Amino acid sequence: MARLAHITLVVRDYDEALAFYVGKLGFNLVEDTDQPEQDKRWVVIRPPGAGPHTTTILLARAATPEQVARVGDQAGGRVAFFLSTDDFERDHARFTAAGVTWVRPPVDQPYGRVAMFADLYGNLWDLIGPAPVGASAG
């Protein structure tokens, strides 16, 4: 059986990315291994509470002009990442207290409660929680 192991997120700097994703969003650092022969690090994170078989995010430092141009524009201005939570209000409040920039306020959709935020580079993320009790499935 195949599964998606990692997705790559192109970043400007490993440490500033870790400060945001681990420090502000509460992601877990899975691995941070120096690879001096390639002048890079293997930096892997995952959302808090995610199990060992969850798809992880590989933070890849931009090393060429083409890669630098992609920092903050992983999906051409569309939402690039969807972060699911079992408690929307808790995580929305925690992210707000940590200084996360909200692009769209929370709204109720048939699939759940959702709010859009930008990461430190401008990539767009949706925080998605369960649909409120009594919400119509549309």
Rank of each mutant, 00 (worst) to 15 (best):
M1N: 07
M1L: 08
A2T: 14
A2Y: 13
L4Q: 12
A5M: 08
H6G: 00
T8P: 00
T8Y: 14
R12V: 03
Y14M: 01
E16A: 04
E16V: 15
A17T: 09
A19C: 04
Y21N: 05
V22M: 04
G23W: 08
L25P: 11
G26W: 10
G26Y: 08
L29C: 10
L29S: 02
L29A: 01
E31L: 13
T33S: 07
Q35I: 13
P36R: 06
D39L: 02
D39W: 00
D39T: 05
D39Q: 12
W42A: 01
W42Q: 00
V43Y: 01
I45M: 03
P48A: 04
P48D: 02
A50D: 07
G51S: 04
P52W: 02
H53E: 14
H53D: 14
T56K: 15
I57S: 00
A60K: 09
A62N: 03
T64D: 10
P65N: 05
P65W: 09
E66R: 03
Q67M: 12
V68A: 06
R70L: 10
G72L: 03
D73I: 00
D73Y: 00
D73C: 00
Q74K: 10
Q74P: 03
A75S: 11
G76K: 01
V79H: 03
F81W: 15
F82N: 07
L83P: 04
L83I: 11
D86E: 15
F88H: 10
F88G: 06
E89R: 09
R90L: 14
D91I: 07
D91Y: 15
A93Y: 05
A93I: 11
A93N: 12
R94S: 10
F95H: 14
T96E: 09
A98P: 05
T101G: 02
W102R: 12
W102K: 13
W102C: 07
V103R: 09
R104I: 02
R104T: 15
P105D: 14
V107Q: 13
D108S: 15
Y111D: 12
V114Y: 04
M116K: 06
M116Y: 11
F117E: 01
A118Y: 11
A118N: 08
D119L: 04
D119W: 12
G122F: 00
N123E: 02
L124K: 14
L124I: 07
W125N: 00
D126N: 13
L127P: 12
L127Y: 08
G129V: 06
P130R: 14
A131P: 12
A131D: 05
G134H: 05
A135T: 15
